[in-house]
């Protein structure tokens, strides 16, 4: 198990949100879209040329820019590791 930020999650992989550390406005918007500690987030696809990320949280799909995704910390369990 390791701690990464959302910007590093690979397509198709799922991880659990540990914490969101960002300014208040962004934090609130993320909460309203379902980003809360303890919830699972799945990376669906990553835009080319440092484009945005397409992620799913619950039944909601959103696009996030990479700069903003860097504020979302995840606890990521790689398939190869044992938990």
């Amino acid at each position: 198990m390791s701690t990464i930020h959302l910007g590093l999650l690979e397509p198709g992989k799922t991880a659990t949100i540990l914490a969101i550390k960002t300014r208040e406005g962004l934090n609130q918007r993320l909460q309203a879209l379902g980003f809360r500690a303890g919830r699972e987030v799945k990376m669906i696809r990553r835009g080319w040329f440092s484009g945005p990320l397409h992620v799913r949280i619950g039944t909601t799909e959103v696009m996030v820019r990479r700069t903003e995704a860097e504020n979302i910390y995840l606890s990521y369990v790689d398939k190869g590791e044992s938990t």
């Binding site: 993320l30 879209l33 820019r65 903003e68």
Partner: peptide, 10 residues
């Protein structure tokens, strides 16, 4: 653009 660009993809 002050609003964070986090857009729903409905």
């Amino acid at each position: 653009n002050d609003d964070p660009l986090i857009l729903e993809l409905p």
